[in-house]
Amino acid sequence: MNDAANTDLSADAPVSPAAPTVRYESQLRRVTRRFLRHKLAVFGGIGVILLIASALFADLLSPHDPIFIDTSLRFLFPMDNPSYPLGTDEIGRDTLSRLLHGGRISLVVGVVAMIATVVTGAVIGLTAGYYGGWIDNLIMRFVDTMLCFPQVFLLLVVAAFVTPTLISISLIIGLTSWMEVSRIVRAEILHLKEQDFIQAAHALGASGARIMFKELLPNTMAPILVAATLKVATAVLMESYISYLGYGIQPPLASWGNMLTNAQSYFDTVPFLAVLPGVMITFTVLSFNFLGDGLRDALDPRLKMDQ
């Protein structure tokens, strides 16, 4: 029986005449090509690259020390003084330097929180969807319970017990916002696990874990990616909420959130102090959303947009 298997049958096996000669293209090139055709995605991608670069090189790009106070230069308007291109705040700190360093913190919080959210949400959603029955019920009722509390309350409760550091804040945000991801993943899994290829995988002797992580999970990548980029955006916002309430990034360190908070007292006189971090948050959120959208279209091999 074994010898027979090794016999080459191709010579007499019929070759489908319909088989088209497909131009061969590597996966990476195809994804890149699709991505580049999506204009907003390119915009988002460039935006994200700029943000990451500015965060990485914040020290080099900043004209001043972001926490250096010079009370003689309070409330400088942008371009008033060429060495302070974006002006200064209420105690004379350079706004540009603070934006750059704040961006570093916001991005770290955003990305770490996103990873925590997605990993937790995906594993929980996958477990609930795959096993179904009482396990699913138990998990999803727990998710409902978590969703009943406004996230800010959850954040504050946890934050009251944890010393605020960059990582602890990120994890707190991540661990209080995984519920939507788990719902999305569960819904996808419920639909996917009834598909023929999952039954085929069972019929070929695949184990439960293999089916969960190798067959099901990769098929939920598109919605997970979109959720992930959205989560970066909301985490940036969440950080500003808790900073505003005094549990977040502590002064004098700058984050876009606490800059926005400080600026609100002077909004009627020096609006740019609030507008600048606001614009940065908006820009970040949009860039990540567009990027996620473009990635979803480009990565999904099921979408045939080649012609």
Partner: peptide, 10 residues
């Protein structure tokens, strides 16, 4: 159904 019996993303 050969169209749906293979994992589309592998």
């Amino acid at each position: 159904e050969p169209m749906t019996s293979l994992n589309p993303v592998m």
